[in-house]
Design a binder for these strands. Sequence first.
DNA 1: GTCTATAAGAGGATAGAC
DNA 2: GTCTATCCTCTTATAGAC
Lengths: 203, 203
Amino acid sequence: MRTDQRIVLAMAELMRRQGYAATGINQLASAAGAPTGSLYHHFKGGKREIAAAALRQTGAAYIQLLPLLLDPYDDLATGIEAAFAAAATDMRNTGWANMCPIGTVTGEVADTEPLLRAVAAEVMTAWVDEGSRYFADRGLSESDARSVTFAVLTALEGAFLLARGLRSDEPFLAAGRTVAMYVASLPASPPTPGSVVPGSRGA
Amino acid sequence: MRTDQRIVLAMAELMRRQGYAATGINQLASAAGAPTGSLYHHFKGGKREIAAAALRQTGAAYIQLLPLLLDPYDDLATGIEAAFAAAATDMRNTGWANMCPIGTVTGEVADTEPLLRAVAAEVMTAWVDEGSRYFADRGLSESDARSVTFAVLTALEGAFLLARGLRSDEPFLAAGRTVAMYVASLPASPPTPGSVVPGSRGA
DNA sequence: GTCTATAAGAGGATAGAC
DNA sequence: GTCTATCCTCTTATAGAC
C-alpha cells in the first residue's frame, strides 16, 4: 500500500480509538510504519491535514454500509433493527472500540479546530444526502426519508457512545428497536415492482 | 465558591468544549482562577482525578433534568419531543457548544483511560437506573421503561454530536420525533390518580 | 491553603543528509 | 521519496517559600 494511504489509514484507526488530541505524530508515524519526516512530506499541513483526510475517507466508506446492510431486507424496519444488532456484535468483537472516528472526533474538536469541524460537517451532510436518497428509493416520502436518516444517524452515534462507556450492547438494541418502530409507523410500504408510490421520487 | 469546586466546575466546562486530552492543566488553572499548585493540593491525582470528579458531578446534575423537563407534560411522548426541542434551542443559544462532557469525553478516553472509562460507566449506569425508575413511575412496564431510557439517552447523545458538527437543530428534532413515536406506540397510558397500572412499580 | 518557580519529558514541526 | 537528528514549545507534576 502507498505510504500516504498507510498514514491516513493509521490516523483513522488511532482517532477512532483515542480521538484527535491524544494521537501524537510519533505514535502515528510508528503505526503507519513511516518516519515522521515522511508524514510532512506527504501532508504539508501536518497532523491537522492528515486528520482531515482520514475523516473524509472514513466518512465516505462509512455511508456505503447503508445499502449494504439494508438491501437484503424487504422490510425496512426489520433491516434497520438487524443493522443495529450487527453493529453491536461488531463492537463487542472488537473490544468495544468505536467504529466511527467522525463520532469520536467531532465532539472533541468542534469548538477548537475549525478545519476539522468543517470536514465533519461536510461528511455528515453527505451522510444525510445519501441516506435520504436511499430511503426515498425505498419508498419513503422525501421528508420522511430525511427524518429517518437523521433518526438512524443520531441513534447510531449515540449507541456507539453509550455502548463504549458501558461495554454493553443494550444501547444498540434499544436504539435499533426505537428507530425500527418509527420507520414501521410511517406511510408508504416498500415499493413493489410496477407499483407507483405517491410522494416518492424517481428510482 | 470553594476553590476545589471552582476547579471541578472549570474542568467540566472545558471538557465539554474540547474534551479531556486537549484540556491542559495550565488552561484549567487559569479558568478556575487558581494557580497550578492549588490543583495538586486539592486533587493529588492531578488532571485525571479532577476529570473524574467533574464527570461524576455533571452526570449527577444531568439526570435531574429528566423529571424537570418531563413532569409538566401529561403525555410522555409530547414531553419527550418538547425536551429534545428545548435541548436544541439551548445548544443553538450557546453557539453549538456541547451540553454534556460525559458524551464528549467517553468516546475519547474509553480505550486509554481506564479510570475515566469506569467513571463514565458509573454515571451512565446511574442515568439508566434513574431514567428507568422515572419512566416506570410514569406508567411504563419495567422492561419498556428501561428500553425508553436507552432510546432517549442514545438519541440525545447522538443528536448532540450531529448538531455540534452540522450546527443545525435538525438532528434534535428528528431524534425527538422518533423517540416520541416509539413511546406513543407502547402500551400503558400515564397513570391517573387512583388507578393501578399492572406491571408498574412503586410510586 | 495559596502561590511561584522549575524540573523532566513529550508534543508538533523542520532541516538536511541520503 | 525516505529517514535522522534536532529545535522549540508546551505539557504534567513537584518543591518549597509564604
